[in-house]
Amino acid sequence: MILRLVERTAVLLVSLAVSSVLVFGFLAVLPGDPARVALGVNASDEAVAELRRQFGLDRALTTQYVDWLTGLLHGDFGTSYISKAEIGPQITDRFQVTLWLVVTGMVIALLVAAPAGTVMAARHRKLSGLALSAFSQVGVAVPAFLAGILLIMLFAVKLGWLPANGWTPPAEDPGMFLRQLILPALSLGLVQGAVLTRYVRSAVLDVLREDYLRTARAKGLRPFPALWRHGLRNAAVPVVTVLGLQLATLLIGAVVVERVFVIPGLGSLLLDGVSNRDLLLVQDVVMVLVVAVLVVNFLVDLLYVALDPRLRVSR
């Protein structure tokens, strides 16, 4: 167990290091001169040189990389070449917004997938199971931004129950915050839920075939309690892995949904950064997203061990 923890932590650290090199290398080495980009094509060479000095772009790449990384480790994300504003506070602000979306979306996805997938598995030969199956197949085919547009058309345009877009921080107006959160979170959650449902279904189907479920029935447990007490935790093991991977999809999927609902999240910050050619900002946001995904997968790995005692044996 300890060994596994050490091993996983090592893998996480190496992954973080490698991805930081990748992100830095990709955005700092490949493109043209960020200073020239920031000032425009017509800027004088002197002005460009001045800006390069100002942002330390004239130093060796390794020095720049080390500086950037030490900055990140201290929570200093640097200053935008374009707006000359501190990047750190923007990211913290926007990250909270995206986190609300993703976490609510994930909760909705689980609330949809766990019961639907279980019913689909338990009744996989019956009409209700097949109908749910077909329904989830359609759900999988709908991209989140399309779901968002459809939800807006129904709940905002037709019924007028909820606002079509916008964002209010929870501290400012909790009621408005919730009303504006519902539709974007639903569009993320429903679509992800449809995908997740199919994994839950196959995990539960696998568990239903297990001998220990028959042992549980032979003890006198009725089918559903047997599945609940003995099947769920076992079925959760593969589903949790998928959840971890899905979080990456959700974080990035939020980018598109933020665009649909005009929400100032991390995704819109990234897209704005790209269209402004604000390369340091882009580099920072990408890094934050990648770190989030890697850390989540690390946590999922630990959760895995908590769920399955067989993995606790130190190998």
Partner: peptide, 19 residues
């Protein structure tokens, strides 16, 4: 391979688009 999973298509495409 696992590391690459941390870079979904959308993120990669946006990075490529930026560059």
């Amino acid at each position: 391979n696992d590391l690459l999973l941390a870079f979904p298509a959308l993120l990669l495409a946006i990075m490529f688009g930026a560059v």
